[in-house]
Nucleic acid binder design. Structure first.
Lengths: 341, 341
DNA sequence: CGGCTTTGCTAAATCCATTTAGCACATGCT
DNA sequence: AGCATGTGCTAAATGGATTTAGCAAAGCCG
């Protein structure tokens, strides 16, 4: 089976024309003066031979490879990562591009390697995605292709795609109001006293700003705010137990679903019913949110949209600067009461 | 900033040698007769110019692009997918390759497109990964690069990497024995009567074979077997409630963690304590398994190992046929009692 | 010293598609 | 008829590496 690939020269030969003609016709040049018969002959020849252009050869000449690189600090962690990747992949496919995936672990050395590997392959653009960090992590190299930041920002590259955390924060509060809960709400995961000090990230600070603005707009205030440094279920569990010792909240506003999951466990042990005795709203729309009983009402992250949008921006004409804020989908499930006061 | 890329010719010029010499030296040819001084001059020149070879040009000549394609039916679904991807990515990076990621949704048309897109870019190998299906889904095209099947099998390409489900099944039973539970075990998720009819997949049938073999080896038998067509938490919940109406099991052997999660919810409502009143073992080591209280003892899938191994096989010398069965990691958490009889 | 080998290096071909420059012929105009 | 213009197409250069074939000088031998 030593049959080589079909080249443009083969097509041209079969069509009885030059490779120039074949190339112009197949790439669909507009201004060409080649006859309709020539077009037909070339297309027929290409079809009958099953011709596929060699992308490497084309890239060599045109400096366009119809491929982009998705450079991420982490790939495996959450559904968030795969959502971004999937959205990006879909947009790339729509634009007939392929996507290189590269993971850096947030390590500068690997970041540099990743960028070099991508640039060596003549990619047409770079997506820098952040799962954990938010700021400054683009290696300081000569990058002469468009770059879009995804779920992160950079001083050097201002084009970015981010979730609209501020609006998301507001929505969470609006959900509480819609459920008729205006008092005795505990904020789980953050503490105003510490807000100045350890900042989680700009994203979370926007989320909190949205929450606080919506609260004060509605004339509401938290019953309490409790904080922990790690937003995992067992922290949510412990925090909730601690809260229940001194307070009797009507609702918990959790800063992510894993905290809320821990809260469910503690509330279940305490014999409190959701949502009759206590309501919950949360953020992220993790997989578990749908698994809980009752389902967890949560403000999700628009993973796929974000990935999709980032690639779209990268590939659609000239790159516009500035951030693109994508709406966070609000998912109403059973953890907030339907109406009532 | 119109500075072009540094080419090999630039390096050769600076070194005062021919591109031939520069190429041979930089690619580290063994049999060359070039002098040590020439080596030094070329390396110095390359370093000082920051030379990076143009992969497209090299690929054109050598038909090797130092890149592989990871073609998957689904990317976003589970942690399983991202684990495979991550492992593959790591192995690719170790071998100084980059990885194209392509998603097909299991649709033949997209599969063909994906393979073509990959082949057009001169990839050095293909990974076909399956998240849902197990069999036959490789488009029938002329593929003249190595192919490794990941988490799936194909009649055309026998090289595959799979979890050792049989041994995993045995381990689950051994865990029950180790916990001192030999009787009153309910199998959740499958039913012997239906085994012939609706087959989940070869993977699951192997898992079940391992379970049944280990049971009969130990002279044990199930108290009951209950089945459902969808392994999601709410089915585990309903199934468990139904079981509890008629049986009082000492342990639940769940065929995946999401079923087990639903079982936790039903057991909690029934006031049964885990593991004192009832123990659980399960499969997959989903994210939730670690979040549950107590933690869920489960036989995990070796995601990252599998991805890693697949790429290793793809890139290490000639491709050997046959399946590579990878051990499923057994994770002992609190859902089985520590000893006791 | 002439012929053979070895050493150290290079010219040129090659991979495949794109693109520039331009040829040969036909047509139109005066 | 003579010249400009238009039409339909192609030869050759180009991009950046690898690789084949082989040249010139030096060393060795008898």
């Amino acid at each position: 089976m030593g049959k080589k690939r079909v080249t443009l020269a083969d097509v041209a030969r079969l069509a009885g024309l030059s490779t120039t003609a074949a190339s112009m016709i197949l790439t669909g040049r507009p201004d060409t003066r080649l006859s309709p018969e020539a077009h037909k002959k070339v297309h027929d020849a290409a079809a009958s031979l099953g011709y596929r252009p060699n992308v490497a050869a084309r890239a060599l000449r045109t400096d366009k490879s119809r491929s982009i690189a998705f450079i991420s600090d982490y790939v495996a962690t959450t559904r968030f990562a795969s959502g971004l990747i999937r959205g990006a992949l879909a947009a790339a496919e729509e634009a007939k591009h392929v996507m290189l995936l590269l993971e850096t672990g947030g390590e500068p050395a690997r970041e540099i390697q990743a960028v070099e590997a991508a640039l060596d392959r003549q990619v047409d653009g770079l997506i820098f995605a952040a799962m954990r960090a938010r700021e400054v992590f683009v290696p300081d190299m000569a990058i002469n292709v468009p770059v879009v930041m995804l779920n992160g920002t950079s001083a050097r590259f201002s084009s970015s795609v981010l979730p609209d955390e501020y609006q998301g924060g507001r929505t969470a509060v609006e959900f509480l109001v819609r459920a008729g809960i205006r008092d005795d709400i505990v904020l789980l995961g953050h503490n105003a006293q510490q807000e100045e000090g350890l900042f989680r990230s700009e994203a979370i600070s926007n989320r909190l700003r949205g929450i606080r603005d919506a609260m004060s707009d509605a004339g509401m205030a938290f019953l309490a705010e409790v904080s922990c440094w790690n937003w995992e279920p067992n922290f949510g569990y412990e925090l909730t137990r601690k809260v229940l010792k001194t307070h009797r909240p009507r609702a918990l506003l959790c800063l992510n679903d894993r905290l809320a999951f821990g809260a469910y466990q503690a509330l279940g042990e305490a014999g409190l019913r959701i949502p009759e005795d206590i309501g919950l709203v949360s953020f992220d729309n993790d997989e578990i949110a749908g698994y809980l009983r009752p389902g967890l009402t949560t403000i999700g992250l628009p993973h796929e949209d974000m990935g999709h949008r980032a690639v779209q921006r990268l590939l659609e004409g000239p790159l516009t600067p500035g951030a693109d804020l994508l709406a966070m989908p609000a998912i109403w499930r059973g953890s907030l009461p339907e109406k009532q006061a």
